[in-house]
Design a protein around this nucleic acid. Structure first.
Length: 637
RNA sequence: GCCGAUGUAGCUCAACGGUAGAGCACAGCUUUCGUAAAGCUGGGGUUGAGGGUUCAAAUCCCUCCAUCGGCUCCA
């Protein structure tokens, strides 16, 4: 008999060699039905795994996140079989789970099209309905290699696999795939699934390798969860900033300039409000602001290291027969400003900000609305300081960053520390010092972070800030980059207290990252319903009929005088239509006025997101609106 | 850049070898209205661009451009 300890601490005796499935049945028929896999002393295994000795055992169900992952992975196998049935020449490469689903990479010359999804799903359903058991076969690495001889993908997978025992999983009907497992007990347990999309993907993510077809699917324990997932995707589509940007007349793109955004009047209002906030916060944190040219002589970019490390992403031009480059970063220009006069340690730390317009030649396939463009405005700054000021300066930037993010209602962040990339300038010692300094600052603030090996900028290591929006999607915004190389290359100096010339440390940092991207993120975060202080049109006056147009105009004048962005709807529409339009335009407030209000000097207030409406004195509304704006409140009240 | 898909009126879409349509939007007129879309009339398209096949191309073929979904890359 083996003694098994269950997660609640209870101990059960079970015959040696019993499987986890047997154990689940022993505990209860409900659990036996729900069981997908098990854990023996923390190691996840198939339900059919025997319990050989005393152990801690857990039964994994779909309530366990890992249970869902196992289910999805099994679903990927079922999809692989379905595809192999439809395209016998398809060769399987690799099929892992991803967030909310799974994919399978397949080598197949004939393209799989979205119109094929239904056929694939039907095949999968047939396999699922057959409820065939998943069966594990183990063998030595050598045997596995012999078995898979001639299949370069599976041979490669075997060579990459860890351990000496290689396992295969079949689920009847001759289908088998190299796989570490574990799997659900039967093909009937792969959940409610749907094929989502197909896309090209390089083998091993290497652009020089063959492009495979990657078929994405999703799978959920029950039908309701699948439906909810599809609705979440719908919700994300509803918030797509590219769609909202057009609907709300905020910005546009044109074939005349792919990757170059046209910012419309309403978009500029939001933009300028962000800039205003940004400037006031930066003044408070002791920054000054400069502006440097967009086109600078090519020689400068040789000196900075951009020529050697960033050339592929740069635009070049000629001026009077001289070779020039369009700046992809602001730092070299900032260095030139620094060099225009002498500097003393007494003025350090010197915090110099720049809303810099940069151009980067991104590959044509990567552009994506405002999120990925070829021209954007960085909220950049360069801090020149002494080595012993690094930590406090980095801490200061972190404080500033969190303050700005919170103003927009982002309160979930995660932080990454990126280390030396292959393409870099500066010695290993410098890199180590710089990386340690960033790490120290993070530790000092007690901030959790993950390490991103080899992902730093070419001139120094960096800290990246990611925020989660209300749909739990993560966006990279800010970055802090430590740089010991650029100051040397530009021969930047300051006079230290001992009257010797020394090289300053340079900290590059951006908080919002790019104004364009940030605007796009805000639009999706708020679903286009911008808070009062950012809304292009804060309030609209809606007269019941033309008879009240004069009063409406008076009300609007009063609002404009109070510095509110207000408009009147003087169209000949009925009041219901005016309100419907106001909702479509996502206005924070609408003021309905008719003869009654004109008589009393009041307005009837409709608040975004609320069904009720309320009578109010105009002056009271003005007061309330001004307060909301002053506080930069996110929700209308 | 690579793989696949898609480009028809300002927007969303129909027509799928045989005279390019609808809804919304826009303009004019009627209605003067009390809380999520009144009615009538009208203007608007070398069907992304260029080439080819055909008596005939939005529709079939080729090249390019752009967009979308991914890969690689990234603020």
């Amino acid at each position: 008999m083996a003694k098994v300890t269950l997660p609640d601490g209870s101990i059960l005796e079970i015959a040696n060699g019993s499987t986890i499935e047997d154990l689940a049945r022993e505990i209860g028929p409900g659990l036996a039905k729900a069981a997908l896999a098990g854990r023996i002393d923390g190691r996840t295994v198939d339900l059919s795994s025997p319990i050989e000795s005393d152990a801690r055992i857990e039964i994994i169900t779909a309530k366990d996140p890992e249970g869902i992952e196992i289910m999805r992975h099994s679903c990927a196998h079922v999809m692989a079989e379905a595809i192999c049935r439809l395209w016998p020449q398809a060769r399987l490469v690799y099929g892992p789970t991803v967030e909310d689903g799974f994919y399978y990479d397949i080598d197949l010359d004939e393209p799989i099209r979205p119109t094929d999804f239904e056929r694939i799903e039907a095949e999968m359903q047939a396999i699922a309905d057959a409820a065939r058991p998943f069966v594990r076969t183990e063998m030595s690495r050598t045997e596995a290699l012999t078995r898979m001889a001639g299949d370069k993908y599976k041979t490669d997978n075997i060579q990459r696999a860890q351990g000496d025992r290689i396992s295969f999983y079949g689920h009847g009907d001759g289908f088998e795939d190299l796989c570490r497992g574990p799997h659900v007990p039967s093909t009937g347990r792969v959940g409610h699934f749907k094929i989502m999309s197909v896309a090209g993907a390089y083998w091993h993510g290497d652009a020089t390798q063959k492009m495979l077809q990657r078929v994405y699917g999703t799978s959920w324990p029950d039908k309701k969860q699948l439906t909810e997932h599809l609705q979440r995707l719908e919700e994300a589509r509803r918030r797509d900033h590219r769609v909202l940007g057009r609907q709300l007349d905020l910005f546009s793109f044109n074939e005349a300039g792919p990757g170059f955004a046209f910012m419309h009047a309403k978009g500029m209002i939001i933009w300028n409000e962000i800039v205003e906030l940004w400037r006031s916060v930066h003044r408070r944190y002791g920054y000054e602001e400069i502006r440097t040219p967009i086109i600078l002589n090519e020689e400068l970019w040789h000196r900075s290291g951009h020529w050697d490390n960033y050339k592929e992403n740069m635009y070049f031009t000629n001026v009077d027969d001289g070779a020039y480059a369009i700046k992809p970063m602001n730092c070299p220009g900032g260095c030139l400003v620094y060099k225009t006069r002498q500097h003393s340690y007494r003025e350090f730390p010197l915090r110099v900000a720049e809303l810099g317009l940069v151009h980067r030649h991104e590959a044509s396939g990567v552009m994506h609305g405002l999120f990925r463009v070829r021209q954007f405005t960085q909220d950049d700054a360069h801090i020149f300081c002494t080595p012993d000021q690094i930590e406090s300066e980095v801490v200061g930037v972190i404080n500033l960053t969190f303050e700005l993010y919170r103003t927009f209602g982002f309160d979930q962040f995660h932080i990454e520390l990126s280390t030396k990339p292959e393409k870099h300038i500066g010695s290993d010692e410098i890199w180590e010092t710089a990386t340690n300094a960033l790490e120290q600052a993070l530790r000092h603030k007690g901030i959790d972070y993950t390490i991103n090996e080899g992902d730093g900028a070419f001139y120094g290591p960096k800290i990246d800030f990611h925020v989660r929006d209300c749909l739990k999607r993560s966006w990279q915004l800010g970055t802090i980059q430590l740089d010991f190389s650029m100051p040397e290359r530009f021969e930047l100096v300051y006079t230290d207290s001992d009257n010797t010339e020394k090289t300053p440390v340079m900290i590059h940092r951006a908080i919002l990252g790019s104004f364009e991207r940030f605007l796009g993120i805000l639009i999706e975060h708020y679903a286009g319903a911008m808070p009062m202080w950012l809304a292009p049109e804060q309030v609209r006056v809606l007269p019941i009929s033309e008879k009240t147009n004069n009063y409406a105009a008076t009300v609007r004048e009063r609002l404009v005088e109070a510095d509110l962005r207000a408009a009147c709807d003087l169209s000949g529409e009925k009041i219901g239509a005016k309100i419907a339009r106001g909702h479509a335009d996502k206005l924070p407030y609408m003021l309905v006025v008719g003869p009654r209000e004109a008589e009393a000097g009041t307005v009837n207030l409709r608040t975004r997101g609320r069904a009720d409406n309320v009578d109010m004195r105009l002056d009271d509304f003005v007061e309330m609106g001004k307060n909301l704006i002053a506080q930069r409140r996110i929700e209308p009240v």
